[in-house]
């Protein structure tokens, strides 16, 4: 696995890291101000967002250029694999925190609240619940839209793998069709999710149920959105002739990411919608 490091690609000095710091400073600083009704906040935040987009575009096209000009050897390729793998692991831990909150509220703290009859007379611990002082209007049932969405995402995982097979067989048509299908399924998923949000009788303000529901599904939806954007970029790269049967880590990284988002959805379906 480890071969001569002589050719390990060491990039030239680069401005991108400092631009990244600037973007995050503007975005978060602006957001903090906007949250506190300071007029300057929004424009600063938007400026930060623009810098951020510029950053992603610039940095990634630089990396893509390097990849095409074949300065990366196998060892660099391995680095990318390690890096992407553990990045996804950190994302898993991010969701783990929210699932933990859901578990704790449902199985521990609501019951304690109900036990404290002196404080909240008459409160019974049920799920879903908006707590002793709020009213919960409606909740999600699993076997409508969510079940369809599960199917959509699972199918998209399959179409993506099919696209990968196409890539490995050098069948560019299969690759393109698979990618287009995957993106379409992802967009369909997001559309249904948006519809579900629009129809919902409760909001993020509806106590602990609303909070955990929107936090978990919202962050998941955000990840699907990012995944779909990344897949689109991969599709564009495929159209301009990037990747071959052996050399396509960019494709694989996005595929890993997509499958990860898929798995998170399964947990969501079980713990947020179903049980």
């Amino acid at each position: 696995m480890r071969q001569s490091t002589k050719n390990y690609y060491l990039p030239a000095p680069s401005f991108w890291p400092a631009i990244a710091a600037t973007a995050l400073f503007l975005m978060f600083g602006g957001f903090a101000m906007a949250l506190n009704q300071i007029g300057l906040g929004k424009p600063v935040m938007i400026a930060g967002g623009l810098v951020f987009v510029y950053l992603l575009r610039g940095w990634f096209s630089e990396v893509i250029k390097e990849s095409i000009s074949k300065v990366y050897n196998t060892q660099v390729d391995h680095s990318f694999r390690w890096g992407m793998g553990w990045f996804i692991f950190s994302e898993v831990m991010f969701f783990f925190g929210f699932f933990g909150a859901l578990f704790y509220a449902r199985n521990v703290s609501l019951h304690w609240l109900a036990d404290a009859q002196l404080l909240w007379p008459g409160f019974v611990a049920t799920w879903p619940s908006a707590g002793p002082k709020l009213v919960l209007e409606g909740h999600m049932a699993p076997w409508g839209l969510p079940a369809i969405n599960t199917l959509l995402l699972l199918t998209s995982g399959a179409t993506l793998t099919w696209a990968h097979w196409g890539l490995m067989k050098n069948n560019r048509n299969q690759l393109t069709i698979g990618l287009v299908l995957t993106i379409a399924l992802g967009v369909a998923f997001l559309t249904l999710q948006a519809h579900e949000y629009a129809e919902a009788a409760f909001t993020i303000k509806s106590g602990i149920y609303g909070a955990t529901f929107y936090m978990l599904t919202g962050f998941h939806g955000l990840h699907v959105t990012m995944g779909a954007i990344m897949l689109t970029i991969i599709l564009l790269r495929v159209r301009s002739g990037h990747f071959d049967a052996h050399n396509h880590f960019g494709f694989e990284a996005v595929a890993w990411y997509w499958h990860f988002v898929d798995v998170v959805w399964l947990f969501l379906f079980i713990f947020v919608y179903w049980l």
Binding site: G131, L134, T203
Partner: peptide
């Protein structure tokens, strides 16, 4: 944003 993760009135803690 009005969530109640850490507020008992909304079922949080």
């Amino acid at each position: 944003f009005g969530t109640h993760f850490f507020n008992a009135a909304g079922g949080g803690d």
